[in-house]
Amino acid sequence: MQFWRLFSRNRSAVMGMFILIAIFLMAISAPLFFPADPFSLAGQSMSPPGANGFLLGSDSLGRDVAAGIAHGAKTSLLIGLLATLVAVFVGVIMGALAGYYGGVIDNLLMRTTEMFQTIPSFLFAILLVAIMKPSIESIVIAIAVVSWPAVARLVRGEFLSLRNREFVQACHTLGMGDVRIMLGEILPNCLSPIIVIGSLMVATAILIESGLAFLGLGDPNIMSWGFQIGAGRTLLRSAWWVCTFPGIAILLTVLAINLVGEGLNDALNPRLRDRS
């Protein structure tokens, strides 16, 4: 396991991975520990942590904060992963076409990318969700739409530098088709940076989702960390726990993903391999 050896050299990345695994386990075991609907009124409202059987307290309507965090983990991870997958998929296609063909196609696709990049991404996401009505699909689409340009630029750069390499030319002399060269020959050679940018993008996606939910643009039927913070916002001085614990959950998740992303970067980037 050479990859693991390289990855584990970065201690904080390993720590990040353990945190991430813990959050993941929490997400899938949420129905086990908190079988009730996290929106249901579970007891006395505004209970501080530890009181009235609430581990992390309850909010103004008596909803269990701990249950919300456990169920919200699923939402955050799911939206983060889905949105990233869509963004990477679109970005890779756009970037690959632009980088491989160059010329007019490159110009056209890159100007389009720039158009997306000129709009501040969070505002753009708000706009999209507001137009499409808040739901899990619309949030995933909104996050993907604001995230793909970064992937497209990265992939374009990689394709530009790889398309003139001799091994690609060798494929041309064999008479290989363009699609096969792009997918079979060039793409495997730029997987490492794509994996790295993808992992970091999951963290951004979780942040955007939380932000949207905080503003009340989340899916109203699904518990999420951003929604919890939004609901507790007005009580910050009287019931600090309602905002604080979901906030810590977001912080830990995003931090863990960033650490893992950094670790992947160190492990997959051969130029950094020998730095100590």
Partner: peptide
């Protein structure tokens, strides 16, 4: 294409680093 083939200069750049040797030769 098959009738004219090329051998390249740089043996380090002319083989796909992610492909096994067997595939490199057999794919033609």
């Amino acid at each position: 294409r098959a009738k004219i083939q090329m051998v390249f200069q740089d043996p380090f750049a002319s083989l796909n680093p992610r492909a096994k040797v067997g595939r490199i030769i057999a794919q033609g």
